[in-house]
């Protein structure tokens, strides 16, 4: 197990990939790097989300295989986000961006979705309060009050939001989405509330590079907190000081 994970996206067998590194309570993928442990956040049914938790993602782009689109597919399948064959108006909750530098700068691929800012511009600008941040840091759109003004889309520095341009059908019960409203990555809030991993993270760990760690940044013992302490990580456009919930390892 080293950091030089095969960068081609072959659906590798999880067991061989993980080798014998599985311990009883956590998954260690390199010495001292805990990929994932039992979340200690379990909220009882009926309990409200609170700022005790701060959900976050850590994405190690060194482990994100080139040409792999598993997280994107998993997300859109999970949330019923379908294409109408019109790329300009089709919704995208997560996308892979190919970043190429000139000279000695390396080329890499990076999945970008809603960054779940602590100070989200989309929430600030929303006239009706439909764009909102849950107490545990997950940024959502309340489609009951969204009037479809798209101001949040202009305000988002990450192009994380999509406007639903056409009539939708076949929505998943936990991910309502409808024409004329704005939507974005929910961090799979329906799964998080059940102590499950977001679909992209689950898929990445199962079938792809295992580049994503999900967890509670407020919990010092969580895998994500440990990994964040252990290695330097960065926010995209950290200069904007939005305090993102999604961090990356290995980006410039």
């Amino acid at each position: 197990m080293n950091d030089n994970v095969d960068r081609k996206c072959e659906p590798c067998d999880r067991r061989t990939f993980l080798g014998g590194a599985i311990s009883a309570a956590s998954l260690t993928i390199a010495p001292g790097v805990t990929l994932f442990s039992i979340p200690s956040f379990a909220r009882k049914p009926g309990e409200r989300a609170s700022n005790v938790n701060r959900w976050g993602l850590l994405i190690d782009i060194n482990k994100c295989p080139d040409g792999c689109n598993e997280c994107v597919k998993a997300c859109h399948r999970e949330n019923g986000v379908k294409s109408h064959g019109r790329p300009e108006t089709d919704a995208k909750w997560i996308r892979k961006i190919t970043v190429s530098g000139s000279g000695r700068r390396p080329e890499f691929e990076i999945p970008v979705m809603c960054q779940h800012c602590e100070n989200p511009p989309c929430v600030d600008v929303c006239p009706t309060g439909a764009s909102m941040k849950r107490a545990d840091g997950i940024v959502l759109v309340d489609k009951h009050t969204c009037i479809g003004c798209r101001y949040c889309m202009i305000a988002c520095p990450y192009k994380a939001r999509s406007f639903v341009h056409e009539k939708t059908t076949g929505q998943r019960s936990f991910a309502p989405r409808g024409k004329g409203t704005v939507e974005s990555c929910t961090l799979c809030v329906h799964r998080v509330d059940q102590n499950r991993l977001p679909a992209c993270v689950e898929r990445c760990q199962e079938k792809a590079g295992g580049a994503m760690i999900f967890g509670d940044i407020n919990d010092k013992n969580s895998a994500i907190s440990k990994a964040l302490r252990k290695y330097p990580s960065k926010e995209i456009r950290g200069d904007l000081n939005l305090k993102l919930g999604v961090r990356y390892r290995g980006i410039p």
Binding site: V123, D124, V125, C126, P127, T128, G129, A130, T145, C146, I147, G148, C149, R150, Y151, F163, V164, K179, G180, T181, V182
Partner: peptide, 25 residues
């Protein structure tokens, strides 16, 4: 031009006072 012009009433009754857009309404 709104995605949901039928929800004009919501725009008039739900204000987010941090929003410049809401100030404008």
């Amino acid at each position: 031009d709104l995605g949901r012009p039928d929800r004009l009433l919501i725009a008039m009754t739900h204000y987010n006072f941090r929003s410049v857009f809401a100030w404008n309404i």
